[in-house]
Amino acid sequence: MNKCIERLYNGIIKENPTLVLILGMCPTLAVTTSAINGMGMGLTTTAVLVMSNFMISLLRKIIPDKVRMPAYIVIVASFVTVIQMLLEGYLPSLNESLGVYIPLIVVNCIILGRAESYASKNPVVPSIFDGLGMGLGFTLSLTILGALREILGAGTFFGLTVYTEELMPPVSIMVLAPGAFFVLAMVIAVRNKIIRGKKTAAEAGCDKIDCGHCGNTACAGHKTGSAE
């Protein structure tokens, strides 16, 4: 069970797909014009991710290595089709505002990335939690991005008015494409400051030897040890 909680923590904080791995940028930048869109996109992706991780993990010994990518795509595409039909039926407004980005979940690199790097090598239960953690991390960051952009750019939060145009005109560039980049960069900066702001390289698990081959980026690129 401990491993499952570790997977959740890994997905939401340590390897947050949007803010740390910088994966799935296309939906991240395109649909986070409002908090509800960001959350809807995140939860939709989470549902697909959990189910596809589950299915791929089940089939990991059956799928031949040479055709694994087409097999993953078929599995993911089936789930995306199911989800899209459900959304069309029960949440038509969300389906409309997410538009083409729902079918595009099929090629979302977070989903294929988790299938390739985790679900195809690990047992079923951790894979489900891995999908859940990654999905929730994606949902969390998309909701934060959407909320910030909505508040700054439209003066509302989940559709509720925060401030009116008379009080302070909203900065409407924030709900347009450039605003997505501004807000994403700021959120990543703040996240890095909070998570690893005060950690020294040694605390982050660095032995200051062989920095050139070290994959750990927690020392913020201060590859200081190589000279010694």
């Binding site: 005109p169 900065v171 409407s172 560039i173 924030m174 347009l176 450039p178």
Partner: peptide, 10 residues
């Protein structure tokens, strides 16, 4: 350009 896109009316 930032101002022009954000506050076109003004």
């Amino acid at each position: 350009c930032f101002l022009f896109i954000s506050f076109a009316k003004w």
